[in-house]
Write a protein that binds this DNA or RNA. Structure first.
Length: 926
DNA sequence: ACTGATGCGTC
DNA sequence: GTCGGAC
DNA sequence: GTCCGACGACGCATCAGT
């Protein structure tokens, strides 16, 4: 059997041939000239017309094998033939003769005759790889002539009403099809520039059209404007006051198309096959197996299998299964499994749980609501623990993870890439609610979860949803590539979810449960539910970074088995911020008192270290492996290859805790420099070489957690430090210097010293303390101070979210530009005000609004705030060209008015000072 | 090839 | 990172 | 004390549209 793979494009490994790949490849077949197929490949197979169109879309040189339709040719020892696909002008299918097997790849295609595309042709083939953009039965297009008639009457009526009809269709293919449809009906088409350009190429290749004109802004009256969809709401169209816009697309059969595209009408004229034609095509080709691609690939494959045709969706996620099936002769995972399983359960051959019609996910959501309803922590814990006890061992880890506001465990690096934007679109799509109604609901809540509830309420037809299915939903959202694919998955789920279920899906997606319960209380609930000591549960969760696995261990009474081990990162110990050296010292004196008043006298001192402005990192090293983890237990090994290289030179197996800083002798590097390396993807050695050269880093170690098989978590900091000092460090590794202190004055002095070293502040640690992962206890403190404060004036206010939904809690503020006298924005903040102050300001701003834009309003600039921050630097975010790091409101300066606020010039001075302190010096480490 | 919007993770 | 609020 | 939630700026990746 021919091997078929999918990796952002179909790949035939045995032939080393790519079919419509997304990325540049050495050797590829390009079915047609739409942009998503255009990449700078080295060598391509194309039809003649596609070659011509490509030339205008992607200039540059490449080797082209231009094949005529219907003739068998040999390219690189490969026998193949192109067949017209009927999709757009020049679009081709690729038919391959591979020994005694044949393969037909359709590319995009349609069966209905088009007026501007060649009529499709086909041959029988053993393997069919087909596009299934419209592979759901609800996509059945009306007869073409009927749609054309509708479009024509739309245009005529619009013109008669004295308005301009605007038809939106892709500039290549769809626009020309529309143009042909208007032939002989007495209308004059006017073409947008990009449409015009493509149409001219069609003509050069022998296609003829009715008379048309090119777009001229002052000549649109009485014409039919044909534009690409991207022109909608563009400058060009906004200049036409009286118009009606229609989208021409297969998606027009969706009842909500008008809202989705923000147009006045939508007509289902498509250059793709509809559902019925997809089915017919399979009948024509009589393949032994089918691979489906694009759109509703999985659903369509499922339908084909129901018809007795072997069919699989070709997507990234099925890759592994396909591979397995070749090797093991096992069946791939069946996307129809849900269906068959329910069928089985009705015959009584399945677990009672499956046949239970009540929705498990709804039960989960209801527990969440009950927890939200009570402010009492103990009551929350009780509700949750009762629920946890009811769950199966399979459900328990999933649910406990959900209750921490996550779809995946903390130590699980997978992300969903589904945010507010995708959620909003899918809620609209699933309910077909109109824009105005949606926005009025959304504006009322400022909470995506609540919005979801109200939007979905009574607009969906709920079906039971099991916990395991919910897990699968999140997993497939993670696997799906691109917002569109994700949106489709989510929309399908919303349309069969109850309002409450949808709300909780959204809560998990956004990571905001907002039920007053998170990891800490979940730990307590697990302890209570399974009668395990709480500290063991906490310990296990710290070590595992996986509340679900912790719960599973608790259920089996095995929590004590969790142990610190190499390559299993643990949460790091955190420090509590304190405002002054005196307040820090007070903490230790108090502890001493409890201890009989003389504890400190008998102890040498407390430990002080500089606080470095970098990224907290945990480095694990064995004899043959090194990994680096971030504060959130994410593997960041790939970002720092030179540290990994150096770490192989340690003599010991160890886990060290420290900070990675941007560092080079004689050069001032900042946190922002470091950030440049952080999000970077780790493919390509060149990239590393360059990144490392740009921003050299150092690892500053300040704690040792594990050494040669021995956990040091339960030894004192003093002991850990002693052990750390004995470790031989490779280059680029340093140990943070510790000094002792015995008074507030010494702390203050060390803090100043740290700042002189250009470090962020000071860490103060109890030398006798154990390492407590994940807690911000009273053993480590940090001392940071603001760089300066600015007096600024509030120029805009926004409604908050969640519990701040009904108050204007978000303030944008400005400084004065002395040269123009104008107010220039410099930052945003709310942090620092009490609820009462926010309430008061809300009232004030409501009465002093200059312009109301819904959730956001510009306000009269008369409230002066004193804003503190840790640094100030150039930025494009705000009009002032400056931005503040960690801005917070120190005070409302009621004694001041707009005229006495600080100036842009002063802010620039601060920024200059901030940047220049450091010119030639580099921060001191040890 | 460029740009803006969105999402994520760092502080 | 920051901060205030609730238990 | 501890946890929770509501917020800041930045840089990079990815996608979708020019």
């Amino acid at each position: 059997m021919i091997e078929v793979r999918y990796e952002r494009g179909v790949y035939l490994p045995q032939q080393n041939l790519w079919l419509d790949p997304w990325d540049a490849k050495p050797f590829a077949f390009i079915s047609h000239a739409h942009n998503d197929h255009v990449a700078p490949h080295e060598e391509i197979i194309v039809s003649q017309r596609t070659a011509r169109l490509l030339k205008s879309r992607l200039p540059g040189r490449r080797i082209e094998h231009i094949l005529p339709f219907g003739e068998k040719r040999r390219v690189h020892g490969l026998d193949l033939m192109l067949l017209p696909a009927g999709h757009i002008f020049g679009s081709a299918q690729c038919f391959l003769f591979l020994g005694n097997e044949t393969l037909l790849y359709t590319g995009d295609f349609k069966l209905r005759p088009g007026k501007s595309a060649e009529q499709v042709q086909w041959r029988e083939a053993d393997t069919l790889i087909m596009e299934t953009t419209f592979g759901l039965s609800r996509y059945r297009f009306p007869p073409t002539q009927q749609v054309v008639d509708q479009i024509v009457s739309f245009c005529r009526e619009t013109i008669e009403a004295g308005e301009v009809p605007v038809l939106l269709g892709y500039s290549l293919g769809k626009a020309q099809e529309i143009l042909c449809s208007l032939d002989g009906v007495g209308l004059t088409p006017m073409l947008h520039g990009s449409v015009y350009q493509m149409t001219r190429i069609y003509e050069q290749l022998g296609q003829s059209f009715c008379k048309y004109v090119r777009y001229r802004a002052n000549d649109v009256a009485g014409k039919v404007l044909i534009c690409p969809p991207s022109a909608n709401r563009s400058h060009m169209l906004e200049r036409i006051p009286r118009k009606r816009v229609a989208m021409i697309s297969g998606w027009a059969v969706d009842p909500n198309a008008v809202y989705r595209y923000q147009v006045d009408a939508a007509f289902p004229l498509s250059d793709h096959a509809d559902y019925d034609d997809l089915i017919r095509y399979v009948d024509f080709v009589r393949p032994r197996r089918v691979f489906t691609l694009h759109g509703f690939a999985a659903a369509f494959a499922c339908d084909l299998r129901a018809r007795g045709v072997e069919a699989w969706a070709l997507t990234e996620q099925n890759q592994m299964e396909l591979h397995l099936s070749a090797a093991d002769n096992a069946l791939p995972v069946d996307p129809c499994a849900e269906v068959s399983r329910t069928a089985e359960s009705t015959q009584g051959s399945f677990h009672k749980q499956v046949s239970d019609t009540r929705s498990e996910f709804l039960a989960f959501a209801k527990v969440g609501e009950a927890i939200a309803a009570t402010p009492a922590k103990l009551e929350k814990i009780r509700l949750l623990s009762d629920y946890l006890r009811e769950l199966t061992s399979e459900q328990l880890p999933v649910i406990t993870t959900y209750f921490t506001g996550r779809a995946f465990a903390q130590s699980d690096p997978r992300t969903l890439q589904v945010g507010w934007s995708v959620i909003v679109r899918t809620l609209q799509g699933a309910t077909k609610i109109d824009d105005a109604a949606f926005h009025s609901i959304a504006a009322r809540h400022g909470d995506t979860g609540k919005t979801a509830f109200e939007v979905l309420d009574a607009r969906t037809t709920p079906r039971p949803f099991t916990i395991v299915e919910s897990r699968e939903l999140f997993e497939s959202l993670h696997r799906a590539r691109g917002p569109l694919a994700k949106a489709q998955l989510l929309q399908d789920r919303f349309s069969i979810s109850s309002a409450r279920e949808g709300q909780y899906i959204v809560k998990i997606l956004t990571g905001d449960l907002r039920i007053g319960l998170r990891e800490g209380l979940v730990e307590e609930a697990i302890a209570k539910a399974f009668d395990v000591p709480l500290d063991q549960v906490k310990q296990a969760n710290m070590l595992l970074g996986d509340i679900g696995e912790t719960a599973a261990l608790a259920l089996r009474n095995e929590v004590h088995q969790a142990q610190l081990s190499l390559f299993r990162p643990i949460k790091c110990m955190l420090a509590t911020p304190l405002p002054s050296a005196e307040s820090v010292w007070q903490r230790f004196v108090d502890v001493g008192d409890v201890d009989g008043g003389s504890a400190l006298a008998t102890q040498p001192a407390i430990f002080l270290e500089d606080k470095f402005d970098g990224i907290r990192a945990q480095l694990h090293r064995s004899a043959d492996r090194v990994e680096i983890y971030s504060r959130d237990l994410r593997r960041i090994t790939g970002q720092f290859p030179e540290l990994v290289d150096q770490a192989t030179n340690f003599q010991e197996k160890l886990i060290v805790d420290g900070e990675i800083i941007a560092f080079e002798e004689g050069r001032r590097l900042t946190f922002f420099d470091l950030q440049k390396r952080l999000g970077r993807k780790s493919d390509g050695e060149d990239l590393f070489a360059r990144a490392a050269a740009d921003v050299p880093v150092a690892f500053v170690a300040f704690d040792l957690l594990w050494l040669n098989g021995e956990s040091l978590l339960r030894t004192s900091l003093r002991e850990r430090r002693a052990r750390l000092s004995e470790v031989r460090l490779p280059p680029q590794f340093q140990i943070a210097k510790v000094v002792s202190a015995r008074s507030a004055a010494e702390i203050e002095q060390a803090f100043r010293q740290a700042r002189r070293h250009l470090n962020e502040g000071l860490m103060i640690k109890d030398p006798e303390s154990l390492y407590l992962p994940g807690t911000r206890g009273m053993f480590w403190f940090k001392l940071k101070k603001e760089l300066a404060t600015l007096d600024v004036v509030v120029v805009a206010a926004e409604l908050g979210h969640g519990k701040r939904n009904n108050v204007l809690s978000d303030y944008t503020f400005a400084v004065r530009d002395e040269t123009t006298g104008g107010l220039l924005r410099i930052g945003k903040a709310y942090s620092g005000l009490t609820d009462a102050e926010i309430a008061e300001l809300t009232e004030h701003f409501k009465q002093n609004t200059l312009a109301d834009h819904g959730r956001y309003r510009e306000v009269k600039p008369d409230i002066v705030l004193e804003v503190a921050f840790n640094s100030i630097q150039p930025s494009a975010r705000h009009a002032s060209g400056l931005a503040l790091r960690f801005p917070r409101i120190k005070a409302i300066r009621r004694d001041k008015n707009v005229d006495s606020i600080d100036t842009l010039q002063y802010a620039h001075e601060l920024a200059a000072r901030d940047a220049q302190i450091q010119q030639s010096v580099s921060p001191e480490v040890a």
